[in-house]
Design a protein around this nucleic acid. Structure first.
Lengths: 228, 228
DNA sequence: CCATATTGAATGAATGTTCAACAAATGGTG
DNA sequence: CACCATTTGTTGAACATTCATTCAATATGG
């Protein structure tokens, strides 16, 4: 699968970067870094810029400066700003995906545990932090008017949604609930996204802890036999 | 209250605009329109542009063209692009506010009815349509990196949230539920925002009808004694 | 020495803002 | 009512700035 390949590359790049950081930061200068490491480095700088300045104010110059490299470099590794941003979004989706699947894997076979694991995974520090959330928000804001972003988003989201629906269906049977699985799955995933949105906006009453509480409260209300 | 004044102006402007439209569209030409009408006209054009092109691609020229006026006009009525966008956000909040309060008023005294009315109000056609949702999304995407937008948002949101909390507290007492009102109110409002987000993104499985179903399912799960 | 990566200045396009000129309404005056 | 002066609204071109992209020159590793 294409996605897996990308993930491997990212993993390697991440490793290589931390290695080089261990040795010497001067490695970034000159031509020591591999193509993958440079791209990773630039994508990270892009996320920084998106988080700090927002989508509209993110410039190639800011990205290059953030990575400690020269102006023209971005157009060398990525052809254009457009492609840099698509690659960044792709990277963030891959990271999210990997985290999500790992959580599902670790949860074992019990559907109730699986659903809870997926919910909790959304609020894990590695995924759910100010920097990443702000970057997500920046993309969401532009997604509706950019077919490329929208296509990237919707294909993934449809898959996650289906998993939620399947889990809700199973829980409904074993718990004897009355709701439509599709409807409840939509309510659940919408709530998770809404909590992210609130975390991004920095609303006072919403922290990672209170968000998780709310998500748990939802599970308890919707599936009392399983989470009561 | 300042907000009320703004609302009055908007209402007058809207009325005046539809009147002039009834008479003759040529009225827009020349200098027939009042200051308020012009501003309203430009704000509507801004929402159009935000919805069609997104925040980053919204230009003064596009707004002016959309309103059928000349380039320099926006800087005359609003001093700068920044102020035009703030005024637009303000306008959208005022409209939402008015709709929300009207729904609450019409619902009578029963808290269960009130809560349901507020939820339904969020998915009313006048508020919840592609154009407006896209504009909201554009602002949200930039809000975190723009203190002005954030300030505007958070003061309003805190008020709505408090109303939700109060209603949840009342329902808890009358229904003998176990949850913390604050937590459930957060879950509820997050879900509403999440549903909006999905509607904006144009996710296939989410329409205004399914969103409303999901919201109802949430109410039924969280407050079975009241909505079961 | 060759292929490749990197730099930074040059370029050109896009865009927000300014402004001088023009037009329309307003209000005062004979 | 007619006339003119003043205020106010409107236009479109000019201007300055910002920014993505290009590219010739340079540096680096193999």
């Amino acid at each position: 699968m294409l996605e897996t390949v990308t993930l491997m590359k990212n993993a390697e790049a991440r490793e290589a970067l931390s290695e080089s950081a261990r040795k010497d930061d001067a490695e970034k200068r000159g031509r020591k870094a591999s193509k993958e490491v440079r791209q990773f480095q630039l994508i990270e700088a892009t996320i920084d810029s998106l988080a700090k300045r927002g989508y509209a104010e993110t410039t190639m110059a800011d990205v290059a400066d953030g990575a400690g490299l020269s102006r023209g470099i971005v157009n060398f590794h990525f052809e254009s700003k457009e492609k840099l941003l698509v690659a960044t979004l792709q990277y963030m989706y891959d990271e999210y995906s990997a985290h999500w699947r790992a959580a599902l894997q670790k949860a074992g076979d019990d559907p109730a545990r699986q659903l809870q694991a997926l919910v909790w995974a959304d609020f894990d520090r590695s995924i759910c932090n100010k920097r990443k959330l702000a970057a997500w928000c920046a993309f969401w804001g532009e997604a509706k008017s950019r077919p490329t972003y929208q296509a990237l988003s919707s294909s993934r989201d449809a898959y996650y949604q289906q998993v939620f629906i399947d889990l809700c269906t199973t829980l409904k049977q074993s718990g004897g609930y009355a709701y439509e699985p599709q409807v409840m799955a939509l309510a659940l995933s919408a709530m998770l996204e809404g909590l992210w949105l609130r975390l991004m906006m920095g609303t006072e009453d919403t922290t990672r802890e209170t968000a998780l509480q709310a998500a748990n409260a939802f599970l308890a209300a919707a599936f009392p036999k399983h989470y009561g």
